[in-house]
Structure formats: C-alpha cells, structure tokens
Nucleic acid binder design. Structure first.
Lengths: 196, 196
DNA sequence: TGTCAAAGTGAGAAGTTCTAACATATGTTA
DNA sequence: TAACATATGTTAGAACTTCTCACTTTGACA
C-alpha cells in the first residue's frame, strides 16, 4: 500500500495527473515541465514515461479528466431547473464560465491554443458531447423534438458567446470589464435574445 | 547595406520579429523556439538578446505588431459602410474573425493563454483601443452620443460573441461546425439581436 | 517457489534559454 | 582623419528541458 519509501508508488499515473493539473494551474500550461511534476510526485524524471508516451499525453490526460468534470458540473447544474425551461440554458452558461474561472489553466489547455499539439480524437469527442447537451436544451426551448438546422444554428451562436465570455473573464477577470455587469444577467439576456 | 556576409545585419530586430511571426504561424506559439528564429534569420543564438530581453519580449513584439495590423484592418473594413449603419458592426466582426483564421498563431499568442507570461501593459492598451472602436460604433447604432452603460453592455456582449466565434472557427475551421452556416449571416443575425 | 512483466532508477544525449567575455563595425568628436 | 565609445555581432558554456536506454526492484501467478 506504499508506506513511505515503497519502490512502487501505488498509483503513479493518477498522482502524476494530479501533479500536472496542479502545476498547470499554478504556473500556467506553457511553463509546465515534466520535471516539476516528477519533483512534486517524488519520482525520478524517467518515471512518467512508463505511464505516458510523452509530455503531451500527460497534458491530454489532465484535459480529459477536466472535461469529464466540466460536463458533470453542467449536467448537475441543469437539474436544478425544470425540463425545457430557459433557465437551464443560463445554468449551462454559468457553469461553463465558472469552469473557465475556477480552472483557468485546464480551460486554456483545452481551448487556448494547445490544439495543434494536443489533437487527440477523445478531446474532439468530449467537446461534441458537451455541445450536444446544449443543443438538446435549445431544442426543448424552441419546442423542437429533434436537433433541427435552426437548433444547431442557435446553439452554435450561444456556444460562441459563452465561449468568448469565458475567455474574456478568464483573461481579465470580472474586475476589469465584467464587474460592472452581473454575470447571470448577461447570460439570461443573451439566452433570451438568442432563443426569441 | 549588408551585402552577403556583413557582420552587422542591418535590421536584425525587424528580421527576428518577422522570423518569429512566421515560425509562430508554422509551428504554433508553444513550439516556437528562439533558436529556430535565429537559424531562420541566419544569426547566432545569442544575437536576439541584444534586441530583446528574452523570448517573451520577442513574442510580445510579434503580438503588438499583429494587433496594430488587426486594428488597421478593422478600421479600413469599417469605412466601406456609411457612418452609423449596422453593417459597420458586422464588418468589424468579419474582420475580427478573419484575423483569427488568417493568423491563428498570432491570434492565439494574443488571446489564447499566454497572458500569464505575456502581461505587457501595451497589450492591454491595444486591446482597449480595439474595443473602443467597437463601442463607438455601437453607440452610433443605438443613437447615443456618448459611451453609456448600456452601450458598454451591448458592446461587451458583441465582443464576447465574436471572440468566441473566432476561437471556435480557428480551432475547428469552418469545415466542421461553421460551414453549414454563412459567416456573414451569423454576424448580421447576432448584431441585430444584440442591438435591438 | 521461480519466473516474468510492470514499474521504478540513474546516466546521458540532444536540445533549449540565456549570460559572459570577446570581436567588429559605425559614427561622433577632437 | 584617428581614436574612442557604443551598438551589434560571435563563441563558449551553465543550467535547464524532454526523452531513451540499460539496469534494478517488486508483485503476481503458474
């Protein structure tokens, strides 16, 4: 069970993912180094390569784990409101933005420009899943039984907005441009304009 | 005039900025290395440090230059439409998205998560300038003579949307989610919804 | 119990950023 | 116009990266 100085770690893979996540938040994804993660996990710098192909795979693992959490958060935020109510759209948006602000490192890792290096099909798939959640809510709000072209269009517009808002608030913080506005009001306002 | 093997380069600073810009587009900002830029410019790896404090300053220089170009593009796109017409808002948006798609590397460098490392006041200032252009157009469209709270609010919403749209299109390309939609239609649609 | 695969380690190759000491042009200024 | 100060290069190298290789340790199971 890995007392103190066990040669085998127990679950080094998970430990490295957590160390990576932590460092990505602390120092930012672009300053993250595998060696740092090793120091934090207390293993040699060669150890990660038994669990991950390379540095990128470590980062991908962190993003995948983060996306799963993100998706779970959105789904649970949803359930506080009755089926088909427009508040559910707002709730998704709130959760999306909250993730960007609470985990800026992971958010950036996913969306903010590592997509060239991190081009894993599982990431694409995860993104589609999240988008699907939104689409099905939009459909209900528009009184459609299936994902029509118009539903996709409105969903795409809403997604763009919330995505951009998340970046801006993550970068500048509410303090700068957003504090003057109430986040929930903004999201409600936009949802209404988009669903009308 | 730097014939062939002149010891002094002529304008190494500019040459390095261009080399950096080029490499950032080619390989992505996170894979950019100073050494690559040196090879491309044909100088030793120590040369850049006579012109830039460090790697970050090189990247900042590229972003500043890109932002100036971006701003100029937006202003010139604007002038194709009469003062106060809503098409001017759409034109700004088109230009914003076009920049993201034409220069994804620089766009990402500016917005996509290097803001921790690249926290230069000149960048913030440049961003405010661009936002100012949008705000003054929004004011005119709403028939306001000055930048009211409501103008800021609408401008902020529009900006968020276009910003998010740019990221999504840059990441996925029109091919994936956007091709089904006409970009100009989307922007026009949103502008109308937001200014109503 | 013995063997084998899994999961660690240390050493080191190749590449990175950046500094220090040195070399060479350029342009004032005596 | 010679000489010096300064700007702009270079080479060498220190300290760091990522990742590989050959090796060791350990747990599992035949």
């Amino acid at each position: 069970m890995a007392e103190k100085k066990a040669y085998h770690h127990g679950d080094l893979r998970a430990a490295l993912i957590e160390a990576t996540r932590q460092l990505v938040e602390e120092k930012g994804p672009d300053s993250f180094s595998v060696s740092d993660a090793c120091r934090l996990a207390g293993v040699s710098t060669a150890a990660p390569y038994k669990h991950f192909k390379d540095k990128n795979e470590m980062l991908v693992a962190v993003v995948l784990e983060g996306m799963a959490r993100h998706r779970a958060n959105m789904l649970s935020a949803l359930q506080e409101f009755p089926e088909g109510s427009p508040e559910r759209i707002t709730a998704i948006g709130m959760e999306y933005v909250a993730f960007a602000m609470n985990e800026p490192g992971v958010f950036r890792l996913k969306f903010g420009g590592f997509t060239d290096r991190i081009a894993d099909p599982r990431l694409e798939e995860g993104g589609q899943q999240s988008f699907g959640i939104l689409l099905s809510e939009v459909a209900k709000c528009l009184g459609e039984s299936r994902i029509t072209e118009e539903v996709r269009r409105r969903g795409f517009l809403l997604w763009s907005f919330v995505h951009g808002l998340s970046f801006i608030l993550r970068d500048r913080g509410l303090a700068d441009k957003g504090e003057e506005f109430d986040l929930h009001d903004l999201l409600k306002d936009v949802s209404e304009r988009m669903l009308k």
